[in-house]
Design a protein around this nucleic acid. Structure first.
Length: 579
RNA sequence: GAUCCCGUAGCUCAGUUGGAUAGAGCGACUGCCUCCUAAGCAGUAGGCCAGAGGUUCGAAUCCUCUCGGGAUCACCA
């Protein structure tokens, strides 16, 4: 449990009692926080209660702070309480409290940091959703990992998470795929050599699909009009591509709960259903859009079309729902898809997209607002580009030159763990450099190595202790953590106990990168402590002639190991016992 | 022309939904292995938080504008 909540709840209970005893009801305590102070020297937690209440009561904050100080001092875990600055109340906790926390970690193991914050609410996270037209590349990989880690985080803080993939198997791109595969099919039957024209997919990964088609259908479709073969070949090709993508995903440890087909959505008339909901609200009309200022597309032609009044819900212009050929636009189908997700999962929807879809966010959010009567909100997490580098030099990729690095190539080269951790090593809205040379370095410049090394060292201490103490399994349940009095040990304890709060914050802000930074910092504190034992034997974890201290330190090391494991498992990265 | 994102040490980046003296790593310089993995650690130096206004007890953080970099811009997905 996030320990700040213990004191937050305690403070609020006391404040409510106090205010009702003075005949004050409905006082707004919602702005009161109990948080770590920015500078740890100021104490273990800090509350702004006096500053918040001084506004409400029009009273001197220092005066109120003195009252708060009295309240907090009552709590048995409190060492001391001080008033600072404009009216912050800072508290320091007793060593016995930290000892209890260490034993909590020991009991909860990798589950330390689990939380009930989500109250089992349903939440749907849609990520990857790559067009089934080819293998995944680095950028897709980033969205995939960010979505997956985010899902892990939500699960850890008590949400009922569904991981979903939306298959774009009905639309122009799927048709292009089918036409491309058709040519490979002809090629497989000896009608070659085939030149893939501009606009179709030239990738060699379609050759085997063409061969499979030739085996399945023989020459049935040779020389036949497109209307004969488009549908079956499209279905076959999409399935083949999805198999390819699933295999890519498997290689980085990603498994979705649900794959939703766009085609089925259309076949089941869900688009009409969703559009009707908008129609009934009078949000549709026939109109002509103006071309964007400053850049008029070459083939622009003003045409009357079915439009949705998305401007009413915050969008910049109204949006088209039907193409010139009368079929639904991607947007129309997407409205149906999100309406469908809402009916299946309720209001908590998250999409993880590439930043190149940024211009699409407003229209989707306005549509979701409209079609669910304002009940649902879709959070869109945009991931910026991934720049592939080698020793600092960009790797130029172009389909024409044939240099095209797939996600599979990357995983083959550096491994799943490296891919996963590096992909969350930046905020999603900043672009990310992925340098093959750097991510394989075995130095503290490489967070993957550095964090796993810390875990390996924890494991190594445990192994060493068993040998030295000649105890095959060491029972730490009676270990006395209050013996850990050195500042470097205490720093580590305090970092460990930050973990539950950090997971919650990562969920609230939807920022997986915080997990990685935390693990890096935790590792750094541990490495530092380790090295202290190198410089001064007094600080070594195992002291043969001082068992109580040894047990206390083993408790600390084991707790560190569990928190590292807990964090790495959220990231989907293996915790190594040896490097 | 419009929308969205970014701008923090020489370089790459953190900065806890507005808090106290802005932090890491790299690079540079100085140290630490007879000792649980030196694949590590300790220390020194380095800042007008792009700029200008505003909001308030208080701003790197929120608002407006300007400058610089990126992405996107009817019917594609």
């Amino acid at each position: 449990m996030n320990f700040y909540r213990i004191f937050h709840d305690f403070l609020l209970t006391k404040l409510k009692d106090l205010s009702s005893s003075k005949g004050l009801e409905n006082v707004d305590f919602s702005k009161i926080t109990v948080e770590p102070p920015k500078d740890p020297k100021h104490g273990d937690f800090s509350t702004n209660a006096a500053l918040v209440l001084s506004k409400i009561f029009q009273n001197n904050p220092r005066h109120i702070a003195a009252e708060i100080q009295k309240i907090i001092e009552i709590h048995p875990s409190i060492e001391k309480v001080e008033i600072a600055g404009p009216g912050f109340v800072n508290a320091t906790l007793k060593m016995s409290f930290w000892n209890d926390q260490l034993h909590t970690i020991l009991k909860e193991k990798e589950h330390y940091g689990d939380s009930a914050m989500g109250h089992g609410q349903k939440i749907n996270i849609e990520y990857v959703s790559v067009n089934p037209t080819g293998p995944m590349h680095a950028g897709h990989g980033r969205g995939a990992v960010v979505g997956d880690v985010l899902a892990n985080i939500y699960k850890k803080v008590g949400y009922n998470v569904t991981r979903e993939y939306y298959i774009n198997d009905e639309g122009g791109q799927a048709n292009i795929l089918a036409r491309s595969t058709y040519l490979r099919y002809l090629e497989a039957l000896g009608h070659g050599p085939i030149k893939i024209p501009e606009g179709l997919y030239p990738g060699s990964y379609l050759i085997s699909v063409g061969q499979a088609l030739s085996v399945k259908y023989g020459d049935k479709f040779v020389g036949k009009p497109e209307s004969d073969w488009l549908s079956p070949i499209k279905k076959f090709s999409v399935e083949a591509m999805m198999k390819l993508i699933r295999s890519d995903l498997k290689k980085i440890g990603i498994y979705h709960d649900i794959f939703t087909s766009e085609r089925k959505l259309v076949d089941n008339k869900k688009v009409e259903k969703a559009i009707n909901v908008l129609e009934k609200q009078g949000l549709l009309y026939e109109g002509v859009l103006n071309p964007p200022k400053g850049m008029i597309p070459e083939d622009w032609e003003p045409r009357p079309q079915l439009l949705f009044k998305s401007t009413k819900f915050g969008d910049d212009i109204d949006r088209s729902l039907k193409k010139s050929d009368g079929s639904w636009t991607y947007f129309a189908k997407d409205i149906a898809y999100h309406f469908d997700k809402y009916t299946r999962f309720g209001p908590n929807l998250i999409n993880v997209w590439g930043a190149d879809h940024g211009g699409y966010v407003k229209r989707l959010q306005s549509a979701v607002k409209a079609v669910t009567g304002g009940k649902a909100h879709v959070d869109v997490i945009l991931c910026q580009m991934v720049n592939l580098l080698d020793k600092g030099k960009p790797i130029r990729m172009s389909k024409r030159s044939g240099i095209f690095i797939t996600l599979e190539d990357i995983v083959k080269k550096v491994g799943k763990d490296v891919v996963r951790l590096i992909m969350i090593s930046r905020k999603n809205d900043a672009s990310l450099d992925f340098d093959f040379a750097k991510v394989l370095e075995t130095s503290h410049e490489n967070p993957v190595f550095y964090i796993q090394y810390a875990h390996a060292r924890c494991y190594s201490v445990g192994r060493q202790a068993q040998e030295t103490l000649k105890e095959p399994s060491i029972d730490l349940s009676q270990a006395n953590g209050t013996l850990l009095i050195d500042s470097s040990e205490i720093d580590l304890i305090k970092k460990l106990t930050q973990w539950p709060r950090l997971v919650e914050q990562s969920a609230i802000h939807e920022e997986p990168h915080r997990i990685m930074y935390y693990l890096y910092e935790l590792s750094s504190i541990f490495h530092s402590l380790w090295n202290k034992g190198k410089e001064n034997t007094h600080f070594r974890f195992i002291q043969e002639n001082d068992l109580p201290n040894t047990y206390a330190r083993l408790l600390l090391v084991k707790a560190t190991k569990y928190v590292l494991r807990s964090g790495l498992s959220v990231c989907g990265v293996a915790a190594k016992n040896e490097m």
